[in-house]
Amino acid sequence: MDDDDLAGLLERFGLSRKEIDTYLAILEHGESKASTIADAADVSKRYVYSISEELEDRGFVEVDDHSVPTLIRPVAPETVVDRLTRSVEEIEPEIRTRYTETERPGEQFEVIKSRQTVRKRIRSLLADAETEVTLSLPAEVLPQIRSTLEETVDRGVLVLLLLGGAESERQDIASLAGTASTVRTWDALVPTMLTVDRRHGLLAPSELLTDSTSETRAISLTQEQLAPVLAGSFLANYWPTAEERYVTAPRELPRTYEGFRNAVFQIALHRAADTRLEATVTGRPIGDRDLPATLTGEIVDVRQSLVRPATSTLPIENAFRLEVDDERYTIGGSGAFLEEFEADSVTIRRLEAE
């Protein structure tokens, strides 16, 4: 830490720049006369006498005015730090009693300069994920967030992970197991893109996480209109091109999903194993269709490209067909408009053979 950094920290404790220069001179010279300190700090001798009394009151120095000439000596660093720490500890409960929490704005944008902060933000967003995650990043970064990814998957969150760069081709299936619901790799570098629960997003050039000298920046956002666009770009432009390397086993049923893509993903896995499924969906009909708020029936088709083989006509299409009393209805997720029913939650069960 240089003098400017230290000065910036001392300013937080109420010291002016001149006071800091004087204090630093006292620290460097040890017990000294006022004239010596004045020369070192480029201030007047009278100012040194005046400011030393204030620094003494704050516990930074001691003034021996019984000696001739007067001597000024710095207080031991551990004593100064202890006093400052106790002051902060005394302030904290008083601040808490006066603090009024206000709701944070619903839309937030932040430019992040540090790759350490980007990694920390990725781990934080993953830890808070509730329904789904899409994530692309350089393969060499995986070990740094692996444990957080595994915890996210263990909570039942859908995690679509795309690893880019030459290192991705050297990843074996065993090393990928448990890191995501499904993992794809691409030998080209891909931008770091993260979306969480259709609300939070992060976008950064790949070199920000791989090159310590990079001066690129990341953008973090909380925006319900933009985060799905970022997820759509991931699913349409990168996910179809990458090679599927790992797919988790289907989860035990019955199970209820608030995240629609997560439900579609599990339906695709179970149908690939020739499991007959029944679903109960709650939500609302689209348009002026006369349908109840809850539908229950057998799943007879699924349209998706989350896992191979893809069955959708568009990479971002996720839907399934439900047969209810000999009628078939197409079920979509949040914002659906081509389907006949928009689902808020989906409960999937095995349909026993008759």
Rank of each mutant, 00 (worst) to 15 (best):
Y238D: 08
Y238C: 01
Y238H: 12
Y238I: 15
W239T: 01
W239C: 01
W239H: 08
W239Q: 06
P240K: 05
P240R: 05
P240L: 05
P240V: 03
T241G: 10
T241D: 15
A242N: 01
A242L: 04
A242K: 00
A242R: 00
A242W: 02
E243S: 15
E243M: 10
E243I: 14
E243W: 11
E244A: 13
E244D: 14
E244V: 11
E244R: 13
E244Q: 15
E244F: 11
E244I: 05
R245W: 02
Y246V: 04
Y246S: 03
Y246A: 02
V247A: 15
V247P: 01
T248C: 09
A249L: 14
A249F: 13
A249H: 12
P250Y: 05
P250S: 06
P250E: 07
P250V: 04
R251S: 09
R251W: 09
R251E: 09
R251V: 09
R251D: 08
R251K: 09
R251F: 07
E252V: 10
L253N: 07
L253S: 04
L253K: 05
L253Q: 05
P254K: 02
P254D: 05
P254L: 04
P254R: 03
R255H: 13
R255Y: 08
R255W: 07
T256V: 13
T256I: 12
T256A: 12
T256R: 14
T256D: 08
T256G: 07
T256Y: 09
T256Q: 12
T256N: 09
T256L: 12
E258Q: 14
E258V: 15
E258G: 15
E258I: 14
E258K: 12
G259H: 04
G259D: 01
G259A: 06
F260W: 03
F260K: 00
R261Q: 12
R261I: 02
R261M: 07
R261A: 07
R261L: 09
N262V: 00
N262Q: 07
N262M: 02
A263E: 03
A263S: 11
A263M: 08
V264D: 00
V264Y: 00
V264E: 00
F265Y: 14
F265W: 06
F265Q: 03
F265T: 01
Q266P: 03
Q266N: 14
Q266V: 05
Q266R: 08
Q266H: 14
Q266M: 11
Q266G: 06
I267W: 02
I267F: 04
I267M: 05
I267D: 00
A268L: 07
A268Q: 06
A268T: 09
A268E: 03
A268D: 04
L269H: 01
L269W: 00
L269D: 02
L269I: 04
H270K: 13
H270Y: 08
R271Q: 13
R271M: 15
R271P: 05
R271I: 09
A272I: 08
A272L: 14
A272V: 07
A273K: 10
A273D: 14
A273T: 12
A273W: 07
D274H: 11
D274P: 01
D274N: 12
D274A: 08
T275N: 11
T275Q: 11
T275A: 09
T275W: 02
T275M: 07
T275F: 02
T275K: 07
T275G: 03
